[in-house]
């Protein structure tokens, strides 16, 4: 009970955003090469509009984002992923 109250006080006083650290999914899965034919994996980094999901949102690390971008661009040429959708 007392601990609940304390938490409430904290919430009303200085509200703090605890940012959850985003992590690179490819690093945790230990992926060394992102295949452009693997649309299941790549597709999750291409939102509705067909653009490449930015790093700041997905949390992908720099080397993997580079590989991912390359793979997405190849997949687009092979009509596996859309260039743009309205």
């Amino acid at each position: 009970m007392s601990s609940d109250q304390r938490r409430d006080d904290k919430g009303q006083g200085n509200r703090r955003f605890v940012r959850v650290r985003k992590s690179c999914k490819f690093c945790s899965d230990k992926v060394d090469y992102i295949d452009y034919k693997d649309t299941k994996t790549i597709g999750s980094y291409v939102p509705e509009r067909g653009k490449i999901l930015p790093r700041r949102i997905s949390g992908t690390c720099s080397p993997h984002q580079r590989m991912l971008a390359e793979a997405i661009k190849r997949a687009r040429n092979a009509a596996l992923l859309p260039f743009a959708t309205d």
């Binding site: 060394d32 090469y33 190849r74 009509a79």
Partner: peptide, 17 residues
Amino acid sequence: RYLTIRIDEDLKRADKL
């Protein structure tokens, strides 16, 4: 449609990693 990509360098890098 066709698409040719060279993968030996990518595979080599993947192997190295």
